[in-house]
Amino acid sequence: MKRAILILISILGVFRCFGQRELSISVRNKENKRIPYALVILKNAEFAFNTDKKGNSVFFLKDSQIDTLLVKAQGFEDLTVSIPKEGKDLIINLTEETHPNLKAARRNSAKVKPSELNGIDKDSVFYFIGLGKRYENPNYLQYAQKFVIEKAGSALTSVTVNRLVLFLRNDGFDADLKRAMFRIRLYTLDSLSDTPGKEFCNEVIQVVDTVQKVVKIDLSKYKITIPTAAFFVAIEVLRIPYNEQLVLLNKHGIAYDAPPHTLDRGNIFQPFIGLLPRGKQNGAWVLTIKNEWKQYKYFPDKSTNFAISATVVP
């Protein structure tokens, strides 16, 4: 993990270090209403964090640090902002996206049984993103699973996510891997790149889960119609203290029982999504810290899919 800057997402317990200056950020819309959990990417440092539920965050950077912020929030246009050379308060106003949600004609389908895509037996999930992958620091912003249906116009009624749930104790160090808060994002397929394309639901679907390995999210109240035959269900990782997990980074993979005060400890963020070695093609895609989608490969000799299933009604 690059440490060109020291980032502090929580304003509690921070202190000023020599040669550093404090910068506070407030992300709002054009009417100055605060935007919770906006994503801020420091492009040169290749580091990212989310604001808090009031749209605020505080971080420190070196006096000589020159960087540019990419600010993203669901339902708003991305905005690139240069870090000011002076001052310590920065208010960022985002513009709401002008294009309407993508729609598809809903077909009459009385008494049609729902269909589960990528159905998963919870006892068959043994691998998780970020766990034991050699040389990988899983600092991805989103995890997206690709699905294909026969025709556009089906209703998306629920999404089920399988994730890592553990509680470890080693020499007085507690690693609580149960709690997690994340968001569901939905994308069409970009036919040119085969990556997630346009978002077709601007509703903020936020999930707070503290105990479950298998999390089923009921989407029926959102009345979501899938506008294309191929689409993606993505998990947006919120890089906030609530989800933060301190780990030991080494050449053999990530260890969750890192002793306190270890120099090569790093931080990654919940939820840790399950992985499946099945399917004819890799359906797993990740959004990198550079704001680029790339296909994710975990199994060297098999295709990789995320343990994410979707229920649709034709």
Score class of each variant (00 low, 15 high):
42 L>F: 13
43 K>C: 06
43 K>S: 06
44 N>K: 14
44 N>I: 09
44 N>P: 00
44 N>E: 14
45 A>M: 08
46 E>G: 04
46 E>A: 11
47 F>A: 11
47 F>D: 05
48 A>R: 04
48 A>D: 04
49 F>Y: 14
50 N>K: 01
50 N>V: 02
51 T>A: 05
51 T>F: 09
52 D>N: 15
53 K>Q: 07
53 K>T: 00
54 K>P: 00
54 K>E: 13
54 K>F: 11
54 K>W: 10
56 N>F: 11
56 N>S: 12
56 N>Q: 12
56 N>V: 02
57 S>I: 10
58 V>N: 00
59 F>V: 05
59 F>R: 02
60 F>R: 06
60 F>P: 05
61 L>T: 03
61 L>E: 10
63 D>P: 01
63 D>S: 04
63 D>K: 15
63 D>T: 15
63 D>V: 13
63 D>Q: 11
64 S>A: 06
64 S>Q: 08
64 S>R: 10
64 S>E: 07
64 S>W: 07
65 Q>E: 13
65 Q>T: 10
65 Q>D: 12
66 I>E: 07
66 I>W: 00
67 D>W: 02
67 D>I: 07
67 D>N: 09
68 T>I: 07
68 T>S: 07
68 T>Y: 00
69 L>H: 02
69 L>S: 05
70 L>G: 02
70 L>R: 11
70 L>C: 03
70 L>T: 10
71 V>W: 06
71 V>L: 04
72 K>W: 02
72 K>D: 00
73 A>N: 03
73 A>Y: 02
74 Q>K: 15
75 G>I: 03
75 G>L: 09
75 G>T: 03
76 F>E: 07
76 F>Q: 04
77 E>S: 13
77 E>T: 03
78 D>T: 05
78 D>G: 01
78 D>M: 05
78 D>Q: 10
79 L>E: 07
80 T>Y: 00
80 T>S: 12
80 T>E: 13
81 V>M: 05
81 V>K: 02
82 S>T: 05
84 P>N: 06
84 P>E: 08
84 P>H: 03
84 P>L: 09
85 K>N: 11
85 K>W: 00
86 E>K: 15
86 E>Q: 13
86 E>A: 14
86 E>I: 13
86 E>P: 01
86 E>W: 03
88 K>Y: 12
88 K>E: 15
88 K>V: 11
89 D>E: 13
90 L>P: 08
90 L>C: 08
90 L>W: 07
90 L>I: 13
91 I>H: 01
91 I>A: 12
92 I>S: 03
94 L>D: 08
94 L>P: 03
95 T>W: 00
95 T>H: 02
95 T>G: 01
95 T>Y: 01
95 T>L: 05
96 E>R: 10
97 E>V: 13
97 E>M: 14
97 E>G: 08
98 T>S: 15
